[in-house]
Design a protein around this nucleic acid. Sequence first.
DNA 1: GTCTATACGAAGATAGAC
DNA 2: GTCTATCTTCGTATAGAC
Lengths: 197, 197
Amino acid sequence: MAADSKDRMIRSAYQLFRERGYSGTGFREISAHSGVAKGAVYHHFPAGKADLAEQVIRLAGREVGDLMAAAADGVDPGTLVEGFAAGWAEHVRTHDFAAGCAIAAVVSESQHDAPQLARTAADEFGRWRAILAESLARQGVPSEHAASLATLAVAAVEGAVILARAERATQPLDDIARELRKSFEAAVHGARSAQSK
Amino acid sequence: MAADSKDRMIRSAYQLFRERGYSGTGFREISAHSGVAKGAVYHHFPAGKADLAEQVIRLAGREVGDLMAAAADGVDPGTLVEGFAAGWAEHVRTHDFAAGCAIAAVVSESQHDAPQLARTAADEFGRWRAILAESLARQGVPSEHAASLATLAVAAVEGAVILARAERATQPLDDIARELRKSFEAAVHGARSAQSK
DNA sequence: GTCTATACGAAGATAGAC
DNA sequence: GTCTATCTTCGTATAGAC
């Protein structure tokens, strides 16, 4: 099945990118990991590695974004952002601190060879930010402040994943989870006070 | 001169790692960029690429850490953290959004081949965090809270560099600079209030 | 649509001349 | 201490059989 082979390659690349990055992962490893022959790569991804990387970014963005979107219903912004960070802590810990964010890896390594991938990455990061910002806006936080807090949250989580890998400990993610919750709650509280004036 | 050649190679690797990452940078490019012959690599770095990467992490950590340490004298924590983010924004913008943090790149890519590099990276990140935390502690912020705010700041800046590269805009860094300044000022203000009770 | 085989260059690493 | 030359493995990419 074509779709099955293609999907298995994307999923293998996704996993390997998280562990070794974009340049550090070769087709040889992707082929071995997915069980799909090396030569089949260019059947599914005519433009080569950049083509595959784009689909990996989409998959990574969707996987996290869908979880966030599902969690966003019915919880307050502070709980949402804390869960966002906690989910990454869980991810990093279960992979023994040897896996990070595939999108971040591609952004940091592909700009020279395939600059167009930055747009796809920005698009997926944008969705994460929009989900957080909307959760804040629903509680009355002004949209500009909601947007910059959402950016802070996504940036802090991406950075804390790197710090956690370096330290081989989830503490950086645990710390920022608490701080982000506080910042989100303060913004909601501030919006409520302003409204009741 | 030996030290000169070695230093030039480290500086070239430093620059190339920021643009293309650790795996994406070969000795061929480092040699061409630094003007030092390829074969000389193993004279200066007997353990090879990991050896070189360790020195790159040290250089990157020192360069940023020294700037922060110099700035920390005589300014309040909010101004310090804002300057930290603004410095990175300047860096990313002057490199046309094609360069990020060398330490983050090495952490994200080297864990499989050279796991020991994570310790060096954690060490350098730790210094940045300590400078920020101490600035807060000097203003009376309890050390635990100072530490987690410092972690938030370093994580947010590292993540915002990635977001900025993806978007080809400094806005993520500008946004978190403002938010971090607010968080730092709120912590200092809170510490003052608690002390005057 | 998926495989084997292979092209060609670059990767990291080493040996030995100077 | 720095160079040239070279080894082996792996990189991306292609051609063509089935």
